[in-house]
Structures are given as structure tokens and as C-alpha cells.
Write a protein that binds this DNA or RNA. Structure first.
Length: 475
RNA sequence: GUCCCUGUCGUCUAGAGGCCCAGGACGCUGGCCUUUCAAGCCGGUAACACGGGUUCGAAUCCCGUCAGGGACACCA
């Protein structure tokens, strides 16, 4: 291959963007970027029963959220459009007719019912069903509705291709069968539309999930029949759910890319997590997109399927929460604050929250929840914390520190200094003062540093909370 | 059932004949730090599916067994 590579992601818009699809898109994207090639998006919308405009939008949304911008595709014409298969029907028809005229395909008049019946018989006789081609050379019924089938060559033979990740794979002709290219209504089936489009769009490398290795063989037969040079193929290992079965929309909620957004996962973290499912670069774990582009190669893609690991996703997300610029995280935090009734916080304030809370949170949801303790008026006391720290001694220390706090400038260092002063005066450990105070202002025994916590809550609210705690009935 | 792919700690993986009585990461766990919670740092736990070959030498190559996954539609 001398010119720059062209790769594509070709989802069928029959639902949300699937996590497996997202990783396929990512691998193709990375390879294209790495080699200065082109990343194409093509919609395989030939399943008219299930394809919907909403799904098309959902796929765009998922790709956009992940930052996987296509160089060519819907909305970005690169001279190979249109990029929806239903807008390319004439192409499929043309090539099908050509194949028929060359005897490499034929009209098939069998009804689904007939074939279904034959299949049942084969099953009952415990043998594999093969299409018998009874109408292979029928020419007497040109007006009857018919589909178009590919004609498998007779006799011994095999097809082989050298997969870029799996290595050489071979299939015998005898394990292949005549297959449907075009339906009576002119809609192509996957194997046909895929080949016609990959070729006519100049695709040089086809990267897709391993569930497609078997369909590579009929596709190769088609390239051969058409006299076309096939692209290179790379089949990626599958992503399995924790139950070890292929991640499916049905029973794996995590298969939906956008639920992760809802769960407060950062797209950078999801991308990093997913790229490591089937690909690695030595011992590296935290690999930002620019780095992936620099390092990615099919040679390092694994051959075995990978199981989804929610803990590691969370860990990576925590890493990115700390890694990303605060302004970026603060921006992403806004919808989550809004969701719990705290919209419209100034950016600077959000950045401060991120600064203090990012290293204590694994998701944006968690970060927002922690922020709520500071931001929403009032406190919910944890009874155990109250008994443990707001006993008479604790309260005595608490009112001492309250008196000191009231006259202070509201700065974290100064506030913490006040706690220290009181603990020194009373000759007790700092915890003896900080803990009652912490319980008073947050309701619980854990929070960021006491100075920061006071600062974030604000003078008026903090003092009010202390007073409320002091007024609590003694247990 | 037929065909295809795969098989290193619980999970993601490094490993492309000697560097490996197998390294990293998540998780779990012990400790340090510390006003709490985290974060961070130091340590521990745990794997080459099994059986045959080939070789001076195998996690790495070959064969078989077993196991897992995928594909077998007028879905993609």
C-alpha cells in the first residue's frame, strides 16, 4: 500500500452507540491518525425495520462525546458519498446485474417458506443445511419476484487471507454456500453492501470485531468475482460482559456508551479503558489519546476476548479526574450539579470544588454529591458521628473554636490555624477539635481538610451549622 | 451439530526459545503519611488449562484433549 490508508467505521443505526462499536471505531480511528490516513463513517442502514433516524443521531452523539471525529462521512463529504447505504442502492443493483450476466450470481425464486422447510428437514436429519441451488440456472421466470444469490464456485478449493491481528485463516469452499446478495426490493445484505462500499469508497484496511471473521470469506469470494483487490483485514477480539458473553444491548447496560456519560465517566477515561481491552503498550496504563495515536498498531492487538472490568474503569476515571485541567473537569461537572439542584455555579467556584474534591471522587456524580454537602443549606447528621464526637467535651472545644472562627478572615490556612490554636491551648490532639467541628459542619466524620471544608461552606453557613450542632439535644 | 477464533494471577495484560521458579495494572490486603476521608508511597496475595512431543533448554514451536467465545438469516 503506497498511498495513505483509508479506514472506516460502519455501524448500523439500530440503537445507541455500542461500546464494542466504539472500540472498533477507536481502533480504526487510531490507525488512520497514526498513518496520516482517513477515517470514514458509513451508515449501514439497510435493515429498514430496525434503522431509525434517532439511532443515527445517537451514534453521532456517542462519537461526538468520545471525540472521534470522522474525516469523511455524513456531513463531511470527501467525494466518496453518499455515506448512507440506502442512498447507494443503484450501485448495488448495477454490480449485481453485472455478476448475473457473467454467471457469477443468479436470481433465486425460492420462497423463504420453502427454504425454511428444507432447513427444518436438514435439522431433523442432523445434517448441516446447505442451499441446493435448485434455481441456479433458471431463466424462464424473469418476472417473478426474486432475490439475487452469489454463486459459489464448484469443486474443491479454499479461500485464505492474512488477518492483520489473527494471522492466516483458511476456509474450504465446501464450508461455504450460495448466499443472498440482494433482496427482491433491491436492498443489499451485509456481505454485499459492505464489499461494494468498501471498494467504491477506497477503503484499504477493514478493522472490525471478530464476530465478522467468517463473513470475510464470502466477501473475499465476491472481491475475486468482481476482479477487485481486497483490502487488508484486521479482526479485533470481542468485549465480553462480566458473565463472559458478548456484550449485548439486551442484558448489559454498560454496552451503551452514553450510560457512562450519565454515570459521570469522562470520555477520556472510557477511551483509555476500552483501548486497553485488546490492546496494550508494554506496562502503560494511563494513555491519553495523543499517546494512543503515536503508539497504536494492529500488531499489538490481542487475539483473546476481554472481559469488562468496572473497577478498572472507575480507577482510570479517577486518574483522569486528577489529570485533566481543572477548568475542563469543572465544565463537565456543571450538568451533574444541575441534576442535583445546584445549577449555575460560577466557573471559578466549580474549579475550586474540583481542586478539593477530584482526588476524593471516582466519578462526576460522586464529585457533585460531595459538593452538595458544602453547597446545600443545612446538615444531615450521622447519629453515630454525633455520639462519637459531639459529647460534652467535644462541644466545649467546638464552642471555643467557634468563637475564634467568627473573628477570622475566611481563608483555609487561617481557619485551620484556629483549630490548631484551640487544640494547643486545650493540650489535646488536633483531631479532638477537628472532628467535632467536622461533624458539626458536614454531619459526618470524613471530609477534605478542615480549613478547606470551612472555606467551601462559607462563613455564614458554617457558623450557622456550628450553632445548630451546639443546640442539638444531648444523647 | 458444522465451521472459525482463542486459552498467562479473580479481571485487563507484558512476554515473540534461554533475560521468567513469569513483570505491570485493577481488585483484595498489611503498613507509612495524617485532624478525618481520600490521594500518594512502600509491601503482600494470586497465573503460564491439561497431556504428549521438538530442543541442551518452552509460557513461548508442533500435535492432541479439555475449556471458553464467535459465526452459521431475504440482521448487521
Amino acid at each position: 500500500m503506497t498511498s495513505t490508508p483509508r479506514l472506516r467505521f460502519a455501524p448500523s443505526p439500530t440503537g445507541y452507540l455500542h461500546i464494542g462499536g466504539a472500540r472498533t471505531a477507536l481502533f480504526n480511528y487510531l490507525y488512520a491518525k497514526r498513518h496520516g490516513g482517513t477515517f470514514v463513517l458509513r451508515m449501514e442502514d439497510t435493515d429498514r425495520e430496525r434503522s431509525t433516524p434517532e439511532s443515527v443521531e445517537a451514534i453521532y452523539a456517542g462519537m461526538r462525546w468520545l471525540g472521534l471525529q470522522w474525516d469523511e462521512g455524513p456531513g463531511v463529504d470527501g467525494g466518496f458519498g453518499p455515506y448512507f447505504q440506502t442512498e447507494r442502492l443503484h450501485l448495488y443493483r448495477e454490480h449485481a446485474e453485472r455478476l448475473i450476466s457473467e454467471g457469477k450470481a443468479y436470481r433465486c425464486y425460492c420462497t423463504r417458506e420453502e427454504i425454511e422447510a428444507r432447513r427444518r428437514i436438514a435439522e431433523s436429519e442432523k445434517r448441516q443445511y446447505r442451499y441446493e441451488g435448485t434455481c441456479r440456472d433458471r431463466t424462464d421466470a424473469p418476472d417473478l419476484p426474486s432475490i439475487i444469490r452469489f454463486r459459489m464456485p464448484e469443486g474443491e478449493g479454499s479461500v485464505t487471507f492474512d488477518d492483520r491481528v489473527l494471522g492466516p485463516i483458511t476456509k474450504l469452499y465446501s464450508d461455504l454456500d450460495d448466499w443472498v446478495m440482494l433482496r427482491a426490493d433491491g436492498i443489499p445484505l451485509y456481505n454485499f453492501g459492505c464489499v461494494i462500499d468498501d471498494h467504491s469508497m477506497g477503503i484499504t484496511v477493514v478493522g472490525r470485531g471478530q464476530e465478522h471473521v467468517n463473513s470475510t470469506f464470502p466477501q473475499l469470494m465476491l472481491y475475486r468475482a468482481l476482479g477487485w483487490e481486497p483490502p487488508a483485514f484486521a479482526h479485533f477480539p470481542l468485549i465480553l460482559g462480566t458473565d463472559r458473553e458478548k456484550l449485548s444491548k439486551r442484558r448489559h447496560p454498560e454496552a451503551d456508551v452514553m450510560v457512562h456519560q450519565q454515570n459521570g465517566i469522562l470520555p477520556e477515561a472510557l477511551l483509555n479503558f476500552v483501548v486497553r481491552l485488546g490492546w496494550s503498550h508494554g506496562n502503560d496504563e494511563v494513555i491519553p489519546l495523543e499517546q494512543m495515536i503515536e503508539w497504536f498498531d494492529f500488531a499489538q492487538v490481542g487475539t483473546a476476548n476481554a472481559v469488562w472490568n468496572p473497577e478498572k474503569l472507575l480507577w482510570l476515571n479517577a486518574q483522569y479526574l486528577k489529570l485533566l485541567p481543572r477548568a475542563v473537569v469543572a465544565e463537565r461537572l456543571e450538568p451533574f450539579l444541575a441534576r442535583i439542584g445546584l445549577p449555575g455555579l460560577p466557573l471559578a467556584r466549580r474549579e475550586r470544588l474540583v481542586e478539593v474534591l477530584a482526588e476524593r471522587s471516582q466519578t462526576l456524580v460522586e464529585l457533585a454529591e460531595k459538593a452538595a454537602v458544602f453547597l446545600k443549606p443545612g446538615v444531615t447528621f450521622d447519629p453515630k458521628a454525633v455520639t462519637k464526637h459531639l459529647h460534652p467535651d467535644g462541644r466545649a472545644l467546638l464552642s471555643q473554636v467557634r468563637a475564634l472562627l467568627a473573628g477570622l478572615e475566611w481563608d483555609p490556612a487561617a481557619l485551620e490555624g484556629a483549630v490548631k490554636t484551640v487544640s494547643e491551648q486545650a493540650q489535646v490532639g488536633m483531631g479532638k477539635v477537628a472532628q467535632p467541628l467536622r461533624v458539626a459542619i458536614t454531619g459526618s466524620t470524613s471530609s477534605p481538610g478542615i480549613g478547606e471544608t470551612l472555606e467551601l461552606i462559607g462563613r455564614e453557613e458554617a457558623l450557622a451549622r456550628i450553632d445548630a450542632a451546639l443546640a442539638l439535644p444531648q444523647a
